[in-house]
Design a protein around this nucleic acid. Structure first.
Lengths: 198, 198
DNA sequence: ACCTGAACACCGTTCAAGT
DNA sequence: ACCTGAACACCGTTCAAGT
């Protein structure tokens, strides 16, 4: 009777992939263990063989979202944009990573990427700047993503003249670039990095 | 039989105050309508006479948390610290305000306070800087508050040498000050503000 | 190795009805 | 004006038992 059911068994990766797909469809607030199980044609209790708890599953999803962050020799701004875009690539990605990030405060690979880019730029206090930039990216991306979601099916507020969605997006992009640039601290041309040092 | 029950009826303010007190005791994750009702010796459905939904109640709590923010002629850094401390004053205050803040992105009184302090400092692009500073404060405070909560009853990670809680707090304070100062953009002595302008 | 079935202790919300 | 009582449609999690 069930039109498209899986009779195969699942592993940890299949559960995480189903959860990630469902997250994109329904959002974090409606992502329940029972819905994920339903999508896999499995009882909710089956998920607890693969993950110790919902929190553990969400942590795995956060890891997958941040796994795509490029960690090369790009500038701080480009690195920061890469992190932001990885969060934006998944519905509620920023909120999910933010809520999972606290324990890894100093040790995340995203923060390391920012840190290395800062060092390459010759910025002072790269540890604190990397932390500050990560806090800014996560706060910014969470707020922007929430707003995007609210705007998509929210009523237009009765303000005098409401800017278009593109205006808002462009303004927020400028806020992001200004924030990252200011937090980087140095505005240094990349072609003459070490000429007059020591 | 019930040892300490209220037979009086309640208004909107009493519901909000009970919810805020309970938030401090149990945290945002365990703040349910049923628990709030229990604390008021009332059926859960009674709350819906005062608030249209749980989300509306949470928005009211966020408003009360941010209502205590001083809006005077302080510097940007002092204003930012005041906002952060208002969030820290209530358990999970930062997360609650962050999750409620998206719709008010440009129009919150906290952001206005930052904006006015920036203008008084003579900073350029005060609108975008105010937005960036708010995003930073909310991201930073949410992460720090989550970490505080996790540390309070979490196991110590098996790292080589773990810094003391005071070390962590001091480091995070430096990150906050560095972040706000960098985002302010101008380091200008307040006694000679306008000497060589236009 | 992976899943079922049943249960436990919860949720937010609605709505007729009471006072 | 404010609340009860009952119901509806959900939750996360555990655990014995199945294959």
């Amino acid at each position: 009777m069930s039109p498209a059911h899986n009779s195969t068994r699942h592993d940890r990766d299949a559960v995480a992939r189903a959860a990630l797909a469902l997250l994109d469809e329904v959002g974090l607030a409606d992502l329940s263990m029972r819905r994920i199980a339903g999508r896999l044609d499995v009882q909710p209790s089956a998920l607890y063989w693969h993950f110790a708890s919902k929190q553990a599953l969400l942590a795995e999803l956060a890891d997958r979202i941040t796994a795509g962050i490029p960690h090369g020799d790009a500038s701080v701004l480009v690195t920061a944009r890469g992190i932001r875009d990885a969060l934006f690539a998944c519905r509620d990605g920023a909120e999910l990573v933010l809520s999972t990030y606290a324990l890894r405060l100093g040790s995340s690979s995203a923060q390391n990427a920012v840190h290395d880019a800062l060092v390459a730029d010759g910025a002072d206090a790269p540890e604190q700047r990397a932390a500050a930039i990560m806090h800014f990216i996560l706060g910014h991306a969470t707020l922007v993503q929430q707003r995007m979601h609210a705007d998509s099916y929210g009523a237009v507020l009765p303000g005098d003249e409401s800017p278009t969605a593109d205006d808002v997006t462009a303004g927020l992009d400028r806020v992001f670039d200004l924030g990252v640039t200011a937090l980087t601290g140095t505005v240094r041309s990349s072609s003459v990095p070490l000429r007059d040092r020591a």
